[in-house]
Nucleic acid binder design. Sequence first.
DNA 1: CGTTTATGGATACTGATACTATCCATCACA
DNA 2: TGTGATGGATAGTATCAGTATCCATAAACG
Lengths: 210, 210
Amino acid sequence: MRIGELSRTTGVPVPTIKYYLREGLLPAGELSSPNQASYGETHVRRLHLIRALIELAQVPVAGVKEILESLDADTEPLHEQIGRAHRALTPTRRLAATDDARAAATAQVADLLHDRGWSVDPDAPALATLVDTVAALRTLGQDSLVAHLDTYADAVERFTAVEIEAVTANPTRDQLAESVVIGTILGETLISSLRLLAQESISADRWKNR
Amino acid sequence: MRIGELSRTTGVPVPTIKYYLREGLLPAGELSSPNQASYGETHVRRLHLIRALIELAQVPVAGVKEILESLDADTEPLHEQIGRAHRALTPTRRLAATDDARAAATAQVADLLHDRGWSVDPDAPALATLVDTVAALRTLGQDSLVAHLDTYADAVERFTAVEIEAVTANPTRDQLAESVVIGTILGETLISSLRLLAQESISADRWKNR
DNA sequence: CGTTTATGGATACTGATACTATCCATCACA
DNA sequence: TGTGATGGATAGTATCAGTATCCATAAACG
């Protein structure tokens, strides 16, 4: 398959494919002559994955590259592959907060992790984001939401368990890693759109007249 | 309070505040003379909100504007205010899928909505995103995840119930609207970081040796 | 009272991101 | 043999989210 056909079967414009090749998101095709390369099924699959990450999950190109590299690095421990995907997904979003708001948030999050027995890397970017978000919610006067952090954590444990289960069905390690990474990323898009739909539906008949 | 002090108390640089003023995110201060305006507590609060939306929830500036306008439009029905926030949160993320993948996804999503009794606007952007995501997961060979859509929906209903409860405690309608909108948006950041932490912790001891 | 500093408002510039467009020397195929 | 596609390189574009610069005026300080 040459680039034109790859473009036609995936719906991705040729210049964009060339761009992904340049950026190293897509491995080069096999060269039969200096200006004739052929692409295969793996390229089709990868292009689909790239588009899903960029379009649906809004992962920046650099993040996609990171994720794909981790998928290809199948010598490294699975947990490390997942860690790389997580990092690529959590663009350091920090927010200055007053010292006491941050201290309170840090303490609350530490309690939560302790109570749940979650052991995470203290440098995990998601941890910083969580602390900042809790602090921001307090600063914005939304303490009642923060008070239910535990219920959020319950619900989150629920689907994380399902994901782990769904994913362990994969026979090979490579497939497992791919499932985990795709599930982590597209799962978020899934949850987020489900949540918006649930809110829309519930809020519609809850506050019809306000 | 003049712009310098506003900058110092919020940690937002003066040129950035001027930019937000230009973009209409922040209402103008009260002018005492052609080049002397004074800002108050509302400006401090609003700046905190803007920064939280932009930094933590990664909402684009245009979306923040939309959200704030809906918060200020306290004459329109609450449900419509929420709808605007939702639209600002769901940047049309579409992904070309093969016709049968999309058809299957559309059917599955329709079933889900029906079974749960969720009634949503067929033009809701979140609906399109959900369909595309389900189609993409199938195309990428992740059917086992898609098979658990219902469990995701369960967990999502759980959050939503908590949020509604937490938020109805607000005495005034304005506060209620603000809580709903902030909860919708920052809640997503909260859930996403909790989920990453849960995954990290669970995956760590689940796949120690793979 | 004069001088330094800050301010409001307008306009211009910047850096990052994600593509698009153009070139050109091959290459395949008719 | 010529026509269109290809690989590879380089340059251009649009959008976004600020930054920077200017200027005339106002406030604060000595």
